[in-house]
């Protein structure tokens, strides 16, 4: 992901940057992190023109926009066309959350047959238009920055927007959750409790809340920088975690993130 270079160049001293927020297949939780930023949202609203944010406002001004925030994954042909139109309207496109950056929990259908999914939920599936897969925004259009998380962290989101306004690098670390566990003094659940935890291969950003609650990290923020999944799952398997459990563990909210996808497929296929 593009995390190493400064963002921006959008801060124009002569006018306020124009912000737009778009939604695709998702739970709204990531937009909610922005809508619920309280006083900081009001402060932000004073520094940018929020020109399109349907969940927050009935005011919608046509593009082009300086910054587009995108939540959700691409699951219909109509949405695949819509994101191309949005990309053309946004100088900078930033995706927020596991759905937009990896396809989300709904990407579990990438491992099945669409007809089975349709028939499981709808009596007359032929009237429902859906693609066979749920995919990340970057699979369809160039993306300037991807902010991970299911949901995104409110502080990281506000920092990212500040970075965009100031033209600096966002403070989004690529290291793993283990670092956050150590920083908060949480006991390692993988070592001390024998729990199969994804913390060693998952990007930080959640403040290690799951291990701090005596449970496994289940990968909300997706794979960390250069994760060694084969080594980790091999260790858990030798220690007694059934392989089918490891397939499910690596196949959840970021199931289609390349490193997690490769590992769950390898575990499922191989000896």
């Amino acid at each position: 992901m593009a995390g190493s270079r400064p963002l921006g160049g959008v801060l124009d001293v002569t006018s306020k940057p124009r912000l737009a927020v778009f939604k695709f297949a998702s739970c709204d939780g990531c937009q909610l992190q922005l809508l619920e930023a309280g006083d900081r949202l009001l402060e932000l609203a004073g520094r940018v023109e929020i020109d399109h944010f349907l969940e927050a406002s009935s005011r919608s001004v046509p593009g082009p926009y300086d910054v587009g925030l995108v939540e959700g994954s691409i699951t219909t042909a109509e949405d695949a066309a819509r994101i191309r139109g949005i990309r053309a309207q946004c100088r900078m496109l930033v995706t927020i959350g596991a759905c937009a950056t990896a396809g989300g929990i709904q990407a579990l259908r990438n491992w099945g047959r669409l007809d089975d999914f349709l028939a499981a939920v709808y009596a007359t599936p032929e009237t429902i238009a859906a693609l066979a897969t749920s995919t990340a925004i970057a699979d369809h259009v160039p993306v300037d920055f991807e902010l991970r998380g299911c949901p995104v962290d409110r502080s990281q989101l506000l920092d990212l927007l500040t970075a965009v306004l100031l033209g600096r690098k966002p403070h989004v670390p690529g290291h793993c959750v283990c670092v956050e566990c150590k920083a908060r003094g949480a006991v390692c659940v993988a070592v001390a409790k024998g729990i199969a935890c994804l913390g060693p291969v998952t990007q930080a950003g959640c403040h290690a809340i799951c291990p701090a609650h005596d449970r496994e990290c289940f990968g909300c923020f997706g794979p960390s920088e250069s994760p060694n999944l084969v080594s980790l799952t091999g260790f858990y398997e030798r220690r007694g975690t059934p392989r089918v459990d490891l397939v499910r563990l690596t196949r959840s909210f970021n199931a289609a993130a390349p490193a997690f996808r490769a590992e769950s497929d390898r575990l499922e296929a191989g000896p």
Partner: peptide
């Protein structure tokens, strides 16, 4: 809103995973 097929996604998952998965139906 594009369908996400939650009822189908839940099939074959462990009981303990369900609370985390169904949370994602709605962020509100």
């Amino acid at each position: 809103e594009p369908p996400r097929f939650f009822e189908k996604l839940l099939r074959g998952r462990a009981i303990g995973e369900v609370p985390d998965m169904v949370a994602r139906i709605c962020g509100i």
